[in-house]
């Protein structure tokens, strides 16, 4: 068996059943509430690569197609935000992208989600590069991060990133660098 073998070792009947799910409508009982909606949207965006400069439009966010080739489109935002080797310029671009998208967002859920990505880029810059890419003071930044780290829709990987950045902010504050 090679590495492409199904992680669940599915048989044809199971594959058919899974594919059939793709044709089913969402059941009303499964419709997401506010938290679920934010979590879904955040995960959908984090799966995608950083759009090329100046090409992100709010309407495109929910319908933007998944990139055919990762080597062409680049790694997903999730990886960029969590990889210590991500260039600071890229984190800056993510921050600006999230800021622009948040300002154009049509719903509160979208605004919240882009704000979370905006803060994640700032947190990553602080943690991985000891660089400040925001004018917010460390005390304010720690407060924002704490608020978002508590949100039930926040993926654990971002919660961990936020918490480390909070510690970094508090240390800077204590040492008088804030």
């Amino acid at each position: 068996m090679d590495e492409r073998t199904d992680i669940l070792r599915l048989n044809d009947r199971q594959k058919t059943r899974l594919l059939s799910l793709g044709l089913e409508p969402d059941r009303p009982a499964a419709m997401p509430d506010g938290h679920e909606q934010r979590g879904d949207l955040l995960c959908d965006i984090l799966r995608r690569p950083l759009p090329p400069d100046g090409q992100g439009e709010p309407a495109a966010i929910t319908v933007q197609s998944y990139p055919v080739f990762r080597s062409v489109a680049g790694p997903p935002l999730r990886e960029l935000l969590l990889d210590p080797k991500t260039d600071i310029a890229v984190l800056h671009r993510i921050k600006e992208y999230a800021k622009a998208m948040g300002q154009k967002a049509g719903t509160e859920a979208e605004k919240d989600v882009f704000l979370a990505i905006y803060l994640a880029a700032i947190a990553a810059a602080k943690l991985f590069h000891s660089d400040r890419i925001t004018e917010h003071a460390d005390t304010d930044l720690a407060r924002f991060l704490e608020f978002f780290a508590r949100q039930p829709w926040m993926p654990t990987v971002l919660v961990a990133l936020f918490q480390k950045a909070i510690s970094s902010c508090l240390e800077a504050e204590a040492s008088g660098d804030a």
């Binding site: 594919l19 799910l21 089913e24 499964a30 879904d40 995960c43 197609s65 998944y66």
Partner: peptide
């Protein structure tokens, strides 16, 4: 049952998202 429906919805979203770009607009 609610948890199963929840994951089904995400499976559907991810499947259609991926397939949508791979099969052409």
């Amino acid at each position: 049952y609610h948890m199963v429906e929840n994951v089904k919805r995400r499976f559907r979203a991810i499947l259609r998202d991926r397939l949508g770009s791979l099969v052409g607009p």
